[in-house]
Design a protein around this nucleic acid. Structure first.
Lengths: 237, 237
DNA sequence: CGACGAATTGAACCTATTCAAAGGGTGTGG
DNA sequence: CCACACCCTTTGAATAGGTTCAATTCGTCG
């Protein structure tokens, strides 16, 4: 059931074209770049790379969902982001004795394209506009992380969960007859790890949201009914 | 007393050479780049750029300390970082409808070098290695921000304050006869805003640390006496 | 249908916040 | 040079928001 994904060559090209920093390249260039990537499939819950391992690869999600996690000594994990097709993770440091700073785990069955950091540097050399885009994306991610910090510092749990739901909705939302369904298997545990709280508290808040008619939710799924309502809560404090 | 700083041309070149992404350039190149920068002085507490303003400049700290702050609706500020000479902030997005995501405030009297984002893009065009370095620095900052997130999510106040003191010590510490003195005017308010807590709690924790012989502290200053002790606390949880 | 993992709910507990008031160092003006 | 005022800091007591631990219910997959 959860067989590792495989992608056709066509799909690979399409995915690489969707990667933000390759978007503007010609098909010929994309084709050349494509040859530098290898492909690997991962089953659900399988770990793609471990925090602390030497960082030698850059990964691009071709299909599926990937969860970026930081571990703590006490075993309380923190989920930093959930990625979809076209997004990348792993080593972005051209050189240095670096290790992966977070663990990447397949949240669904997944297909990943990988490239060695040397090859990636070659690409940057060959296509300067790509480099600029990479900087822009890094800047955007930095801003997101800082916004995350602000929320953790200053907002109560309710607001953080509401905000997280909205972010997920924007990224993974799909209109259905039960509202905007978030296309990610999302447990209370995951949600807690994304908002810096506990499973129980996440559950309580979600129950309340459901009672208030803001969302519809069940085992590993969430649908948003009232975006404006969630926005109001997310701005509390 | 708190006159805006001015820098000599020599100092400017020295500072620009210290900026991580210009470090490897030849003196001639540095000189050329220098002409693209303007200089501005700021007094203590003066705001250099406001969060929300159109982001058109990149700033480099030439002298002094600069505090990066995010504001919340409730007026509870969050301090994201404190910068010293050679560090940069402001617009790093080459293009787009962007605004500054945080307010930058002079924590001491300060000299700042500024460059328009177009000029900065020119530099990136001319010196590809600079671009790579920028990516590396962005990656490092992203990692730092994510570590910050992890701490806020998973560690108690004591650990976060201990950790912050260690980070500041590493960056601003100077050996004196009262221990490693942190060369930044640091109020309990600032510390609270850096660790996502309140002034009162920060004060209590600092008092306890002092009682335990870990630090020596007073009005707007801190010295570290026992690094290992703080490290032990920062790893709690 | 049965069993396991996920989600819910309750109650006690605890950390950190809030509100309030008092103490101290610094720098300024008389 | 001293005194006052201001701001930073400290401390206390009450409160609240969230955690923890434990038990139960629910949903989904095999």
């Amino acid at each position: 059931m959860t067989e590792p994904h495989q992608c056709s060559v066509d799909l690979r090209l399409k995915i690489l074209g969707k990667v933000p920093f390759f978007g503007d390249l010609s098909p010929a260039d994309l084709d050349k770049i494509n040859t530098l990537f290898r492909e690997r499939g991962f089953e659900q819950d399988e770990v793609i790379c471990f925090a602390g391992d030497p960082a030698e690869q850059l990964f691009v999600v071709a299909d599926g969902r990937v969860k970026l996690v930081r571990h703590t000594l006490a075993g309380k994990d923190v989920v930093l982001d959930i990625l979809k097709a076209g997004e990348f993770f792993g080593s972005l440091t051209a050189l240095g004795d670096d290790v992966y700073s977070e663990t990447a785990q397949a949240q669904t069955s997944t297909c990943i394209l990988t490239i060695g950091k040397d090859s990636f540097c070659q690409i940057l050399d060959l296509y300067p506009p790509v480099t600029l885009k990479v900087i822009n994306i890094m800047a955007a991610r930095l801003r997101t992380a800082q916004e995350y910090v602000r929320q953790l510092s200053a907002s109560p749990v309710e607001a953080r969960i509401a905000h997280t739901l909205l972010v997920l909705c924007k990224k993974f939302g799909q209109a259905t007859d039960v509202g905007l369904l978030i296309q990610v298997p999302l447990s209370r545990d995951d949600l807690a790890a994304m908002t810096g709280t506990t499973t129980e508290t996440a559950s309580r808040v979600m129950s309340q949201f459901q009672k208030d008619g803001l969302i519809e939710t069940g085992r590993q799924w969430v649908a948003i009914l009232d975006r404006a309502g969630l926005e109001a809560i997310s701005e509390e404090s």
